[in-house]
């Protein structure tokens, strides 16, 4: 068993704007996080993911219960001690002007330097190391404002790594990235946890991505309760469907995808194999058809012929057979 890094016992989170009023977001939370583990905190928007992360990193106080870091209550740490153990990447973009990447990453050494911030060789090494781990060494002398969103997010992670923490906490680090960017950030985080024995905790509303990379998922429900487990366990226990269930949206346990439920979906029969068959089915579902493998004679029948780039779609319906050259043409013909 790996080392327990963070644990929460009967934790209550929320806001306390004044002495009398308090807004509880979630309570009775029991959580644990181990070294070398990559955990995704998932859940619908507005459920309190940020509040939980901010409470676990002491950016805001807990309303009740206790958080322990390395076995010691979080509140007992001095702010400098805590900064040496926990680093964060907050949600949203950081706007800085005239600051180079190496300088920004170097800010992460603050908990390790004195009041005049003089740097030792060890500090320099930690910065270069963080740049290398996040694969941004070649950007080190660029200005931060010139980077793309994905590059900038890597630099922010490098800054957090330069702090050399036991626990790295990120709030929606993939929010404004494109799909390849999101995947690369998630894989980076997973590798950081595996390779360095750090605990990495990130919130995300991208369930698909969390499924693919997380060791464990903390699934936060609308009521504020959290289900923990490996992504697959949570699927099998039906937790995903429960958490994200909405009208017209159904969690398909076998594909791991959310599917729209169409009330009056028209059935069609698709006889096709391979890649072309899979994408044809995808297109038909997207257009609101129910895709069947076998069906009555009177239903539209679609067959895919040909291989590689040269496919042909044969639509047989009401005794008429037509050959169509693309999926787009097929859908147009069906929707006529």
């Amino acid at each position: 068993m790996t080392r327990l890094v963070l644990s929460a016992c009967d934790l209550q989170i929320g806001f306390q704007p004044s002495r009398v009023s308090r807004k509880v977001v979630a309570s009775g939370l029991n959580l644990d996080l181990h070294g070398g583990e990559f955990v995704c905190l998932a859940g619908p928007n507005g459920v309190g993911k940020s509040t939980l992360l901010r409470t676990l990193t002491r950016l805001q106080p807990a309303l009740g219960g206790e958080v322990r870091l390395s076995g010691r209550p979080l509140r007992e740490y001095s702010s400098k001690e805590l900064a040496g153990l926990v680093s964060v990447v907050l949600t949203g973009q950081v706007e800085v002007n005239a600051m180079r990447v190496r300088e920004l990453v170097g800010l992460g050494r603050f908990p390790h330097t004195g009041i005049f911030d003089s740097r030792s060789q060890e500090d320099e090494r930690a910065v270069e190391n963080a740049l290398a781990l996040t694969d941004v060494s070649q950007l080190a002398d660029r200005f931060v404002q010139e980077l793309s969103d994905g590059e900038r997010q890597r630099v922010m992670i490098a800054r957090a790594l330069a702090q050399e923490p036991l626990l790295l906490v990120l709030d929606e680090p993939t929010a404004f990235l494109d799909l390849p960017g999101r995947i690369s950030i998630m894989h980076l985080l997973r590798d950081l946890a595996r390779g360095r024995g750090q605990a990495v905790l990130t919130s995300t509303h991208d369930l698909d991505l969390a499924m693919r990379s997380a060791d464990r998922i903390w699934l936060m429900n609308r009521g504020g309760s959290i289900a923990q487990g490996s992504p697959e366990d949570l699927v099998l226990s039906g937790q995903f469907g429960h958490t994200f269930s909405q009208a017209n949206l159904r969690y398909n346990m076998s594909t791991g995808q959310f599917e729209e439920e169409h009330a009056g979906a028209r059935p069609v029969v698709l006889r096709a194999e391979g890649l072309a068959g899979a994408w044809t089915a995808h297109a038909l579902r997207r257009a609101g058809f129910e895709v069947l493998v076998e069906g009555a004679e009177y239903l539209p029948l679609i067959e895919v012929e040909g291989q590689g780039g040269a496919n042909c779609w044969r639509l047989t319906w009401q005794g008429v057979s037509r050959e169509l050259s693309s999926i787009y043409a097929l859908l147009s013909a069906l929707l006529e």
Binding site: S79, A83, S87, V88, V94, L107, F110, I115, F116, D117
Partner: peptide, 23 residues
């Protein structure tokens, strides 16, 4: 004279500064 370090941290905003141990 005592402020360059915390001022540099504040460039990222108060929350980041706090997360880096700045009072």
């Amino acid at each position: 004279v005592f402020l360059p370090k915390p001022l540099n941290a504040l460039l990222l905003g108060e929350e980041y500064a706090r997360s880096m141990g700045v009072n």
